[in-house]
Structures are given as structure tokens and as C-alpha cells.
Design a protein around this nucleic acid. Structure first.
Length: 420
RNA sequence: GGAGGGAUCGCAUAGUCUGGCCGAGUGCACCCGCCUCGAAAGCGGGAGUCCCGCAAGGGACCGGGGGUUCGAAUCCCCCUCCCUCCGCCA
């Protein structure tokens, strides 16, 4: 949620920032009206309650003779408070719904534009060249039996797969490798719950905005997380940090579940876009002054992980039109996929500033003055399926086997995979 | 799944039966003084979170939500979480 106080004090600044994300001026005006109306009602309710409170206290101190008349008079105050409270509740519902629908203010440095208008910041590594026609990951993995798409479809449907044998071991090796790199940078490893309550989804900004992407259990009202960002962020909901608790850095490993509604026909081949995948995800809580630096830091770790796997990739500064609701700024890393002859997104690193923290009520205690909201950031350390794709496609050899990059060998105990 | 016990201001607790003098006492921890060469002990003082307000001030918060009442930490109902015992179980 955006800062209602900033909207009040600098409405033009907020309107201009939101306009970049396609929120029109009328909607911003509506937020201001709701805010003003609500504050006026709060003042009225508080005054009415104050009156009722002192009337009640007077009754407590009155003699038995005086009571009857005082109680009758207080009865009217009771009704007035109830009426005002009802009006305040109705207004607050509108206010909450309207503010919940507003995305975060974009960072001034985030580029303008929509999906596809990203600014490529740099290319890293060498684009691999092959003497043979490069195979794609489906061929490379299915042939040796490391991936079973047909049975995934049989058991669970489209966009599900089995990783088998070396495929399964490759996942565990990659995960442990990514965890080790993140841990070396001070991130605490976490295996979080992946079924969460509505509150966690709302607090992290996936609800109400991305509702159609989320799996929900039928009988228990649990949401399946689409990323461990959700349970990691919600971990410290309703908490007050001391300044020296921060920065607090985690690295989570979890399955992720996405309905992929609206992407029918898109990326249907293989395991690039599936309903269930695994991901190693970094998450950080910082002082508000530190979040931009932390953002660069997380991005650097992502690059260290990919570069360590000897993968060729590019870094993209995501335009405001393509940001998730919570993000003020986002960097994606796109790896080169020879099987698609294109760069495709593998990681994503967002600074959500105080947007999640405001809903989650995660704050920092300040010795003198008002307590501060923390800033939260998230960044993919390693998406298992997409990394497997990039790895086998970029490191494939003419015979269909795959060279294991140096950094991964200790984790896999192998120099080559899928050798006949 | 069955039976019982709990949730109070950082931690531990009092208050709940008998509604008002309780936003709330006490101990520990914490902060500031005094004392001391310095510390401990002792003594004195301070200190929760959120909202409205320029301020003065006001309001809300005793796990969450509803109800009764002029008035609820306290009475009633629902929910969540934790603990103990029984059953089942990876």
C-alpha cells in the first residue's frame, strides 16, 4: 500500500508517479477524497466516544439517586456513537479496497514503457556457439530419462513434469550451490510453509491484484504460494525491529505454484512454464535508506550464481508498465537459451520499498520520533527448472551430453551428464 | 478425531469469580540520574503500539471478531493459536 500521508501532503508528486504506471488522475483524486472523508469521520467518532466515556464515568461516581437520569441521558450518546461508527466502517471498507488496488510508486530511475521496453544494462559471458544444431532442453533431458513430461501430464495434467534420476540430483545440486553462495553473503537459509493464509497474500501485494494466478485449497482457505517471497516477507508481520537487527537477510527454498491463467498456448513446450516449480529465493529487510544499495547487492549475488554456472545472460531494467504491484523497481536477468534462440527471464529482483511493509506492519523502532516502516526486497537466487534449461542447453555437447560447470561439480560429483 | 487448560504493556506474572476508582499493579530486563576510582548493590526518576490533530488535546488497543450494558481485561457467543492427556499417523 502506498503512503496515505504522502498522498495527502504531496498529491501532485504521487499522481505524477502513479500516472507513469497508468493510474489515472481521477482515481488518485478518489483516493484523496476517501482519505479526507475518513479522517473527518474519525475525528467525529473520537469526539462522540470521548463524550460517551466521560458520561459513563460520571455514572460510576454518581450516587444511587442520581443514576437513573444519567443512564437515560447516556443511552442517547450510545446510539450516536454506534451510528457514527457504522459510517466510519463503511468508509474504511471503501478506503481499504481503493488503496489495496493501487500499485507502488515507481522508483524515479525505473524506465518508462510497457513489457518489452526494458533497458538492457549489460551482457555477461559468451554466447555459446555449436558445431551442431543445438538441441532444446526437452530433447536433452528426455532422451536420457532425466525429465518425464508424458507421465507428468498423465498424473497431473499439462504443465507438470517429473525430474528423474540425474534430473532430480541436478536440482538438489543447484539448490545447495545457490544456498551456499547466498549464505556466504550473510543470508539465512529457510524452508518456509508454502500454504499460507489470505493475510500473507494480501500483505505481500499478491492479493487482490494477482488473484487469478493463485491456487486456493477448497476446504481450508489456504493459498499456495507462487514464490517463497510470500512466507519470507510475512514471517515478520506485526513486528518491530531494533535498528541493529537490520539488515536481515534470508534465502528460502520452496516449491512455487502458479495457475498461469491467461498464458494458454504460451511456452507450452518443456518445463519453462509449469504450474509447480522449485526456487531458491533471497529476501531482505532493510532500513529505508539502505534499500537501493541492497537492491544492487541482491542483483550482484544473482549474477555471481549465474556466472558461476558459466551461463551467458543479460541484465534488464524493467519498465514501470511491467512491474508487479509491489515493486518500485525491478531488474530481471535473462539467460540465453539456445533451444529458443533467445534470452528468457530466469531471475527477478525487486525493491518493494515500504509497500509490503505497510500492509505487513513490519517496522523499526526509532529512539526519538516516529517508528519507521522497513523496506523489503526480494530476488531470485536460482529458479530450478529454468536454470536446468539454460544449463543443459548452453553446456550441451554434440553427442547430447552436458558439461557440468566447474562450480557445480562438487555438488554433483560429476563432470559430464547424460553421457551414453 | 476425543478430553481438558491457556493467550494481559520486552520477558514473567497480578487483575477475570464479585463490570466503573484498570491502558492496567508487581518482579526482571531496559534507559536517565545519585552514590562509586570504576562497577555491583542501593536510592530516585523514565519508558508500550497505533490513529486523528499545527498544537493543546482526544480516541483505539488486555489473541481476533461479534454481543449484553450508560460502562467490558472482567459477563455471553464464534474463531485462531499454544500447552497437556488419549487415539491415529510420515
Amino acid at each position: 500500500m502506498i503512503d496515505p500521508r504522502l498522498l495527502r501532503e504531496e498529491p501532485d508528486t504521487v499522481a505524477a508517479a502513479l500516472a507513469r504506471r497508468g493510474v489515472d488522475a481521477a482515481e488518485v483524486q478518489r483516493l484523496r477524497d476517501l482519505d479526507e472523508h475518513r479522517r473527518a469521520l474519525i475525528a467525529e467518532v473520537d469526539a462522540a466516544r470521548a463524550e460517551q466515556k466521560s458520561a459513563s464515568q460520571a455514572i460510576g461516581k454518581a450516587t444511587p439517586d442520581e443514576r437513573g437520569a444519567l443512564i437515560d441521558a447516556a443511552g442517547e450518546l450510545k446510539q450516536r456513537v454506534a451510528d457514527l461508527e457504522e459510517r466510519l466502517e463503511a468508509t474504511t471498507r471503501d478506503y481499504d479496497a481503493a488503496f489495496a488496488a493501487v500499485p507502488n510508486l515507481p522508483h524515479p530511475d525505473a524506465p518508462d514503457g510497457d513489457e518489452g521496453d526494458g533497458v538492457v544494462l549489460r551482457h555477461v559471458g559468451q554466447r555459446p556457439s555449436f558445431d551442431h544444431e543445438p538441441r532444446d532442453h526437452v530433447e536433452l533431458l528426455e532422451t536420457p530419462g532425466a525429465l518425464d513430461l508424458a507421465r507428468g501430464a498423465k498424473v497431473s495434467g499439462a504443465r507438470f513434469a517429473y525430474l528423474v534420476g540425474d534430473g532430480a540430483l541436478l536440482e538438489l545440486a543447484l539448490v545447495r550451490y545457490a544456498l551456499d553462495v547466498a549464505m556466504a553473503h550473510g543470508h539465512i537459509p529457510v524452508i518456509p510453509p508454502v500454504l499460507v493464509r489470505e493475510q500473507a497474500m494480501y500483505g505481500t501485494g499478491f492479493l487482490p491484484t494477482d488473484e487469478q494466478q493463485i491456487f486456493l485449497t477448497r476446504d481450508d482457505d489456504y493459498y499456495l504460494v507462487g514464490t517463497s517471497e510470500v512466507p519470507l516477507a510475512a514471517m515478520h508481520a506485526d513486528e518491530l525491529f531494533d535498528a541493529d537487527d537490520l539488515p536481515l537477510r534470508y534465502v528460502g527454498y520452496s516449491p512455487c505454484f502458479r495457475r498461469e491463467a491467461g498464458s494458454h498456448g504460451k511456452d507450452t513446450r518443456g518445463i519453462f512454464r509449469v504450474h509447480q516449480f522449485e526456487k531458491v529465493e533471497m529476501f531482505a529487510f532493510t532500513h529505508p535508506d539502505e534499500s537501493s544499495a541492497e537492491h544492487e547487492r541482491l542483483l550482484a549475488i544473482e549474477e555471481e550464481i549465474l556466472a558461476g554456472l558459466e551461463l551467458h545472460y543479460r541484465v534488464v531494467d524493467i519498465p514501470v508498465g511491467d512491474l508487479g504491484a509491489s515493486a518500485a523497481r525491478k531488474f530481471d536477468i535473462e539467460a540465453w537459451l539456445p533451444g529458443q534462440d533467445d534470452y528468457r527471464e530466469v531471475t527477478s529482483c525487486s525493491n518493494t520499498t515500504d509497500y509490503q511493509a505497510r500492509r505487513l506492519k513490519t517496522r523499526i523502532r526509532v529512539a526519538d520520533g516516529d517508528n519507521l516502516l522497513v523496506h523489503t526486497l526480494n530476488g531470485t537466487a536460482l529458479p530450478v527448472q529454468r536454470t536446468i534449461i539454460a544449463l543443459v542447453e548452453q553446456h550441451q555437447r554434440a553427442d547430447g551430453s552436458v558439461t557440468v560447470p566447474e562450480a557445480l561439480r562438487p555438488y554433483l560429483g560429476r563432470e559430464v551428464l547424460f553421457q551414453a
